[in-house]
Design a protein around this nucleic acid. Sequence first.
DNA 1: TTAGAATGTGAGCAAAGTCTCAGATCTCAT
DNA 2: ATGAGATCTGAGACTTTGCTCACATTCTAA
Lengths: 205, 205
Amino acid sequence: MARIVQLTPRKTPRQGRSRASVEAILTAGAQILEAGGIGALTTNAVADRAGVSIGTLYQYFPNKQTILAELVRRQKMQFFEDMSGAVQHAKTMDLRCATSTVLHASILHHARAPVLSRELEKVEATIDCDEEDVCAAGGLVDRQLIELLESFGIAWPEVAARDLSALCRGMVHAALMHGECDLDAIEARLRPAVFGYLGIAEGGA
Amino acid sequence: MARIVQLTPRKTPRQGRSRASVEAILTAGAQILEAGGIGALTTNAVADRAGVSIGTLYQYFPNKQTILAELVRRQKMQFFEDMSGAVQHAKTMDLRCATSTVLHASILHHARAPVLSRELEKVEATIDCDEEDVCAAGGLVDRQLIELLESFGIAWPEVAARDLSALCRGMVHAALMHGECDLDAIEARLRPAVFGYLGIAEGGA
DNA sequence: TTAGAATGTGAGCAAAGTCTCAGATCTCAT
DNA sequence: ATGAGATCTGAGACTTTGCTCACATTCTAA
């Protein structure tokens, strides 16, 4: 059933203009995804919006899925970049401060482009995510988090990392979708939940 | 841009066989959605699987969206039914017990058909959810929860209800999708997070 | 300058999808 | 039994979409 589809670019752009085409295509893809969801993302629409012909698009992306896969991969890399600074800092702190720091970075990331990131999460579920690059990118943040939790002696760090990620993503997205834009308020509500999960009393030092 | 689409059935079935057809269509739709996601749900596929002709399908559903809307509405009604017993009981308890009770019911609901319910959530975002019946069904659980939280003197019960719903859904779905099936374990991890959110210390009576 | 490689173009094909319609079949009150 | 209305059928009209291909244009190295 599961058809094998190539998810890597057909050819690597060498000249400047072709690299610009590829960027334009990906940008257009992200914009369309954000504005109209995956239902609106057709290859013709992407090419139109990118200002290139449909032929050019297929010169660099062998099929529609490849475009989506690359968008997902970039989103994950962005997440990694947004988080890694905070996680590095957090290693030098106590659990309470570390949690706050990482939580803050996480919320900032989710708030960066909430609609697009939500849409890309749906897309990710659609793609047969055996694609190496995409999975590798996804694993980066997980690994960081797991190591951090482990260093604090949290039991089952893999499970905790998954739980906390999902829990935060769920609440933050819901709040943003509902129109909230005060990130500090969201963070203030979410922090005690995370502390609760980790078994840290809210009031104490 | 946003085309206006009729979301209510074209005609109401009167005889038994037509009611059976409608049920078969909705059941088929749910099965296809669960097995292959929204990409696999075509009107032809639904009619085939339901064992009725495509003409019969369009006799009762003026378009594809109507089928999805009805599935979403039923899912919400199911959620309401799954929750209302627990919420009623919870009214007679203290906050700690009430929270546990509602949480338990919520997890049971999410575990009932996790793939389908996740898929229907995506669908819901797709549909222009101005449809009265669907929204009304969705509001039922919210209202119940808000009232319950209000009765315990929780500040901003609307926000808390939304936060907690999203937080639970996010974590439970992630756990289930990852293959976990020990609901008690999930509940045991989630409970302290919810207690934390509500400002109840875990250890105390 | 110029050949060859890289890049761009867009009409249009094939497949898949939504939805209609004219007529066949079934049900039930009379 | 029978007629009117309810229900069912499925070929196919029409649209959309992913994708190809033959050809045009631009760039680069010698």
